[in-house]
Design a protein around this nucleic acid. Structure first.
Length: 481
RNA sequence: GGCCCCAUCGUCUAACAGUUAGGACAGCUUUCUUUCAAGAAGCAAAUAGGGGUGCGACUCCCCUUGGGGCUGCCA
């Protein structure tokens, strides 16, 4: 009699948390938050063979990382007694029965049916005998293969979905009283935990009529259903390893940040319905709070969404730009190898470094490209070359730069002044070709051909360090190494 | 094979039957410029096809085609 909104995400611990399941979890969470409901995590580990506690840990870790936090937690393996009770009830009432067919027989049956262009389904003659229990066989639900009824349910996203009852067959419920199978366990758990809305992937549409049959046999209430469109790879098939990363953990390891993942996942198959007030933020950028406020099942798409890594990258870059200095320290720094000098960097400089880096980063792992802020770079001598400028001229440029910088007091670092001095060198020595001055300086400081403005880099390095790197470059030219 | 679901730019999508079919990402161009980004400006890009029903169809109906999913004693 309660109107409480209760939703769940029900992963099976048979692999790392898949991006598709994470997105389903997110939609459930958003729906719960929007409607002040409860979001439940249920581990579906009835298949002991395939389940592994390490995956349960991965799933929880990944959800925690994404900040998809559950309000209640259940685990099917801890609820065996519950299923047994309902199983026994169905058996006692004659609604379920023991089936003794072998898998070979079942396979043959379905192959023959397919050959006859019929829907494959098991029509079990054991349901007519009053078979008694022995150690073999599995428990099935009696389903009328001659039924003329069309099962229909209202999908909150797709409208009415119909299914002919006679196409279903005597569906499996449990391997034995202690080992429930998916469809049965789901129905029991959803009922017992008072799930109001089942929001799950489209791949579960065909399970729905089966679960409805079980609900009817049990004479229990039916929840509302909403089937989300699937996430497809660029080739428009179900997202999988072939398409690159598919687990949340992999995205974490590759340097994506949770806010970007959440934002991106939310927009796969959904979009805010109303045109809300545009703030300073770019189009399509939403925080989890905004998503929670905006979410509505009626705005969920029916057709599958192709995973577009380019858009994810763009979002990730956006969120990296927004990183606070504190987040920068804790999340970006670990991606820089040999990160030992960081503690010695003044906060003021770290802030400037943060700007220079985040403007150029797409993933956290890109931070490794900026290691020159913290350690002397290694590079090949040729990199110092600027266009056709001869080696002697490059050397001269470096020397003049060094001379210009030596008198500078780093404590009152004046970027404009330095620029004027460097531009002067370009003007008097290189016919105004500033590249002849800035390029060798850039390489001397960074060992790379792409970097922020060398003058900006100068500022955050100590004068000693700058002179040292300049000397090293000059030396490289002298020794031609 | 059977059943189910789906169909607007390359991708994600907007458009209570009436819009020059809009935006974002990606792409391209220009700008800035010592490199790379970021930023600014701009360009190109779609209603799968065929029938209906409407004065009027992206929008409603049917067919075709295409795509996806399911078809376990997995979940």
């Amino acid at each position: 009699m309660s109107n409480q909104i209760r939703v769940r995400i029900a992963p099976s611990p048979t692999g790392p948390l898949h991006i598709g399941l994470a997105r389903t979890a997110l939609f459930n969470l958003l729906f719960a938050r929007k409607n002040k409901g409860t979001f439940i995590l249920r581990i579906e580990d009835t298949d002991l063979e395939r389940s592994d506690p390490k995956f349960e840990e991965d799933i929880k870790d990944s959800f925690n990382w994404l900040e998809i936090i559950w309000d209640e937690f259940y685990k099917q393996s801890e609820r065996i007694g519950v299923y047994k009770k309902y199983l026994q009830k169905l058996l006692d009432e004659g609604k379920a029965f023991w089936c003794y067919h072998t898998v070979e027989e079942l396979k043959k049956e379905s192959e023959e049916q397919m050959a006859r262009r019929e829907a494959p389904r098991h029509i079990c003659e054991h349901k007519y005998k009053n078979a008694q229990i022995d150690q073999k066989g599995i428990i099935r639900l009696k389903v009328d293969e001659n039924a003329t009824r069309v099962i229909h349910f209202n999908d909150l996203i797709r409208g009415t979905i119909e299914w002919k009852e006679n196409l279903i067959g005597d569906l499996s419920l449990a391997k034995n009283l202690e080992t429930p199978l998916y469809n049965f366990a789901v129905v029991i758990d959803d009922y017992e935990t008072k799930i109001s809305h089942i929001i799950r992937g489209e791949d579960h549409i065909s399970n729905t009529p089966k679960q409805i049959l079980i609900q009817e046999a049990l004479e229990i209430e039916k929840p509302q259903y909403a089937h989300l469109p699937l996430i497809l790879g660029p080739d428009r098939t179900k997202l999988s390893k072939r398409h690159g990363a598919e687990s949340v953990k992999e995205y974490k390891e590759q340097g994506y940040i949770p806010e970007a993942m959440i934002n991106f996942m939310a927009l796969m198959g959904w979009r805010p319905g109303k045109i809300e007030i545009k703030g300073e933020k770019p189009e399509d950028i939403y925080s989890i709070e905004e998503l929670s406020a905006l979410f509505d099942l009626k705005d969920v798409q029916k057709s599958p969404a192709v995973f577009d890594i380019k858009k994810l990258n763009w979002m990730n870059a956006y969120y990296i730009h927004q990183l606070t200095p504190e987040q920068f320290r804790t999340t970006i720094m670990p991606f820089i190898t040999n990160n030992l000098e960081i503690d010695g960097v003044k906060d003021e400089y770290l802030e400037k470094i943060r700007h220079m880096m985040t403007e150029r980063m797409e993933k956290l792992s890109d931070a490794a490209d900026f290691d020159y802020f913290f350690k002397e770079p290694e590079y090949k001598r040729e990199l110092l070359n600027w266009k056709n400028t001869p080696a002697e001229a490059i050397k001269k440029s470096l020397n003049l730069t060094k001379e210009a910088l030596e008198p500078v007091d780093w404590n009152i670092f004046d970027k404009d002044y330095i620029k004027i001095k460097l531009d002067e060198i370009a003007k008097t020595e290189f016919a105004g070709d500033r590249g002849a001055v800035y390029w060798p300086l850039r390489v001397a400081l960074t060992g790379r051909e792409t970097s922020p403005d060398p003058v900006d880099i100068l500022e955050v390095l100590s004068k000693e360090e700058v002179i040292k790197r300049l000397d090293k470059a000059i030396n490289k030219i002298n020794l031609n190494i």
